[in-house]
Write a protein that binds this DNA or RNA. Sequence first.
RNA 1: AGGCCCGUAGCUCAGUUGGUUAGAGCGCCUCCCUGACACGGAGGAGGUCGAUGGUUCGAGUCCAUUCGGGCCUACCA
Length: 942
Amino acid sequence: MRGRTAGGGCPHTSFHSHTQMPHELPKSYEPGAIETRWADYWVQEKLFSVATPPEGETRPVFTLLLPPPNVTGRLHMGHMLNQTQMDIVVRWHRMRGFITLWLPGTDHAGIATQMMVERDLAKEGKKRRDLGREKFIERVWEWKKLYGGAILDQMKRLGASVDWDREYFTMDENLSRAVREVFVRLYEEGLIYRGKYIVNWCPRCETAISDLEVKHEEVAGKLWEIRYPVIGMDEFITVATTRPETMLGDTAIAVNAKDERYTHLHGKTVRLPLMNREIPIIPDELAQPEFGTGAVKVTPAHDPNDFAAGKRHNLPQIDVMDEHAHMNENAGAYAGLDRYEARKRVLADLQEQGFLVAEKDYSLALGKCDRCGTVVEPRLSEQWFLKIQPLADRAKEAVERGEITIVPENFRQVYLNWMNNIYDWCISRQLWWGHRIPAWTCGQCGEIIVAREAPAKCTKCGSGKPEQVSDVLDTWFSSGLLPFTTLGWPEKTRDLEVFYPNTLLITGFDILFFWLARMIMFGCHFMRDHEQDAAIKKANGDEGKNESKNDSVPFRHVYIHALVRDADRQKMSKTKGNVIDPLEIIERFGTDATRFTLAAMAAPGTDIAFSESRTDGYRAFANKIWNAARFMFMNVDRVEPGLRPTLSGTSVVLDRSRSQTLEDRWIFSLFNRVAKDVNEALAAYRFHEAANRIYDFFWGALCDWYLEFCKPRLNFEEGGDRENARIACANLVNLFEASLRLLHPIMPFITEEIWHKMYDEDPPNKSIALAPYPEMTESQVDLDAEVEMAILQDLIVSVRNLRAELKVEQKAKVPIELFSQEPAVWSLIRQNDDAIKRLANVESIVEVAQSKATQYPARSSARFDVHMIYEKKIDVAAECERIKKERERIDKEFANNQRQLGNEQFLAKAPAPVVEGLRRRSQELVVLIEKAKNKMEELGCS
RNA sequence: AGGCCCGUAGCUCAGUUGGUUAGAGCGCCUCCCUGACACGGAGGAGGUCGAUGGUUCGAGUCCAUUCGGGCCUACCA
């Protein structure tokens, strides 16, 4: 239900019926109902859906991909920060006239989703193997249908202006087809290979995981030294290990060839304790003389370095564990034991048999599964790998050459460092949920067939029904393709032509390598011959810099956002229990206030310590806006019912033809300045600057000064001029409307609500989101007005200041005497006599020919002296104290100025405006010092 | 082991290429329920910018060292 809260009556009923104001607004802003209403409206009206632009389109394009949240996910503060920033940038571009596409979707999240469903199954006492692969996958799809949309629904509450018609899921048929295509092409190009290598294995998830999915944790462990008897000699060789149970799989001892301590043992063998196996001593660089004893055990099946050494020396690989990290039949007497149990027994037995030499405290970086925390076990297994170097080279180049810019810039270096030290990527996972690898094994001859569709028979031996490999692909393999697959690849679609490369990517640094790096690798590889529509590329410009740029990159700009922490700067985590639920915050303060908080705190590169008190403050800001609107409506309804804004392009319309009051000139000047700053801030992702600038303008300038100045003009009934009131109203309405547009990207809901009301629910666009964004109009910047206003403000504040100090009753009006040496100041004060009286609570202003600065109570500025006529016992001591303090400050500054101005080096080297400014200030200071001195004398201060 | 970031008012944070008097929100103190708003208005207190040294006419800002806090990358047994 949209519509005014007052309901019922005709909005244009005449001004005489005082019972019914057309714009009746509640006294305070309640965001809840208003926000959900507009959130629904935006989705239902499909306001942000983008049709494929036809040939010949000449508008600039802005494309942004939503980093797909896991289907299993629930919205957290990180999402909200990310999405708020994206929405701000997206709304801003849309309002600036870009064809703006923001693509939403979710990620199938292999391990996470499988775990969720396995947990459900466990409640029924079942395991996934009880169901079998097909049934299990059906079950996952059911789960996805039921819960998978939750996070996207939550997004709607944030107001995210995405194109819901283009929502994707990484397991959609078209995206899956693209994944198969990519796999096959990479395989055909020789970039994907299969082989038996050591991978990171999670015994709980029962799958291989990539290097990135291993989190290292520094723990206090032990280093055990074990001695192996050298055969045929009365000697032992001692090695050190942190994982003694792996010694069961040792197939050699390595020593460094240059290590003279062991030269005499070259070519000898040792007897492996517990297993009673004879293994050689080999010279290999694996052993570093400086470390430990200089000799190292070699276990090719359980350690990546040992694996490599084993290859060099043709050593057997003895795998002593199974996929659950239990010891297997190769572990002899220890078969069947869990790895840690086996460790205990092995150590005990070694001890007993006299082979354990020492047990030392040792700090080691233990690798744990990112997903479940289980200690990762290096495991020898058959996996699929992506040869990364060729892809990384291009991906590196794209960033080095500036075809992709990264903000904040330090992440550029992080990215390049990583690319420079990259290893092949293990892309196969032993899971059921995910994109199954498009490869088949022939049961007959063992041939591996990689194909887009299931082959009917073996391509080599011709026997029937090859079986598809059971592994699926790493989830990031498919999400790395999204920038082009969501636009229709491998088809050469018009969408690709228009929207690729994406303009921007906003994401967190935590998936810099997982996702961002992979998108760049895949994009540069698969889109290498791509060219964006020339007209659109030109329209987009980037000041012309884009035109020479390569169009294979997945996006032209990257903005990396910070981490949201709790108010005590602690990282939020479920285990710590300090997670702030954004929806709960929204419930309490409103989405707008929450968004504003995140924007205002989002200085690039700095983590955000989310504090509710800030949000509370911004809720007050929303309320302030609401009440300023009430004030405006109240006056419009009284002065000129039915008055609407004169929406004209990107500027604010100032009616300069008739009334040109100082406050109008001033606020319009300021507005334009702010518009300029905000546009610049947003262009540089300086969200906090944009937010603060608008906040200060709206509250500190518009509400605190402009509206106060306007009041008498609007009040024509009390003898005012009705025409003047009309002009004031029109200007106020236009200014307000433009301010709403300026604020809209950050606070979309309240701005939408008020904006519609300004047009009596019949606005020129379906949404303020489709109205143009304000830009600076140079001609409306009015420096004189700004200077004049500053003098008036200074005067008013001075008088308020005196009143507060003398504790003059709030209601009492006092006369003041004013002096200035400048005729211009005189006329300024005369023209604004009424405003000064009202805002400073002054009864009368008497112009005096002689300064009364020395008579208490008085204040001075460089431009005027004001003396208040008020009979009250003066606290001479306190006043002296105040002046003294002020003088100290001025003296210090003056001394500093003189020192600099007396310095020839400074005069010679400092830029002219700085010297100029200092000189001007010095003159002011001389005046101020003189005034203060006189006053002190007058008062008889010591 | 290598790299990165942070340390500014009681709290949370701004302070773009070094340039005149270091800012904001919240909190605190005083006064005011004035017809947009007490989620408000007016005024005020509060900082030797972690420490030391250097570059410079000039440093919160640049450099070095150091202390404290955080993060990322790394196959050293």
